[in-house]
Design a protein around this nucleic acid. Structure first.
Lengths: 195, 195
DNA sequence: GGTTTAACATACGAGGCGTATGTATAATAT
DNA sequence: ATATTATACATACGCCTCGTATGTTAAACC
């Protein structure tokens, strides 16, 4: 039961969980590796062995959060009536999830600075690929105008994430959310062949 | 001629210019304040006196770049036939300017991480206010559907900046630019009352 | 059961930031 | 005009953090 691989996997999880807290509360730059490893009952040795460096640890944390977001958005989108409404629902789900301070700080603010353009991340790439497929299908059946599917997916995704950042730092987030979702849906309807 | 105020202003400019190079080439975190001040013929003493801390220096650099971008976008937008085409032209100008590696690295990647949500920056705020006014006018004259002007301006701005990041890190930026601009215009047309 | 391997801990060195103090020059007052 | 003051900037110091190099212990394998 206490085989090496399972123990290593447990330690990885501990470190990711601890880093997630530290990065969320203090930001990536201010978070000390000594502190967060100690909080996990380990040392920097474990960290460097498992993730290479501080950047690798952030990549693992971002991947975890991003995957959670994508899974939730997809599940919400699947419940919608058709593919088009599903796309809108996914966008709305993304915006709501990105209102979480943890997501904002780690994924939206520090992530791009340390890891580069989000569309190149494995997690985001999977998400983009998924919405791209949906868009291609909607173009085929005539729901959407013939537009570059990659560019369209990226624009919708980017607008959603940026919107979350804006809502969160606004004076009254609760009031801005519905207005923004309305504007987002209107914007997305620009791709429709007809109203 | 060599009054204290003018000399101080000159030194401020020197430091901003040097920091702009250093932040663009090495990134904010990796840029050393000793190096960039030495390159400007000064020391960290001048830096801390003028800008408070490293963060203050970045804020000054971001403000300069962002203001240049906004001025350019506005000048391009003013040349367009009407207010609606002007809005699209401003978006396109923003995307093109943001393809500059310096802009990407400093304003789009490091800026949000260190300074927080861009829509709260003085420079971006001015830009958003401007497009918001244009949108309000376009709603009044019936060109655009009744949508929250602030949210709409933010969505267009965010989509444009995110698009630039995506284009720049794509395999073939030159080929993606026109496709993306087409998709962006289509997206924006979602706000129009009619095609 | 001995050997090897690897996951993790410990120890070390380098570099950067922020502050506290020092200095020289321009502005001001008498 | 000279003495005083204020300030823009330089210098010096200490603390913290990261990355690596080495050491140690326990599981895996023959």
């Amino acid at each position: 039961m206490s085989t090496r691989l399972t123990k290593m996997a447990e330690n990885r999880e501990k470190l990711i969980a601890s880093a997630r807290r530290a990065f969320a509360q203090q930001g990536y730059a201010a978070a000390s590796m000594d502190s967060l490893t100690a909080e996990a009952g380990l040392t920097r040795g474990a960290l460097y062995h498992n993730f290479g460096d501080k950047r690798g640890l952030l990549a693992a944390v971002v991947d975890q959060i991003d995957s959670e977001m994508a899974a939730y958005a997809k599940s919400v989108g699947a419940k919608a009536g058709d593919a088009w409404l599903g796309l809108l629902a996914e966008g709305a789900a993304y915006i709501e999830k990105a209102l979480d301070p943890e997501v904002r700080r780690i994924v939206l603010l520090d992530g791009p600075s340390v890891l580069g353009d989000p569309s190149q991340w494995p997690s985001q790439n999977k998400c983009l690929q998924s919405t791209r497929n949906t868009i291609e299908q909607l173009i085929k059946d005539g729901t959407l105008k013939p537009v570059d599917p990659e560019a369209a997916a990226m624009l919708l995704n980017g607008a959603a994430l940026n919107a979350a950042l804006w809502i969160a730092s606004s004076a009254n987030p609760q009031a801005m959310l519905p207005k923004t979702l309305e504007a987002f849906n209107l914007l997305a309807s620009g791709f429709l062949t007809k109203d």
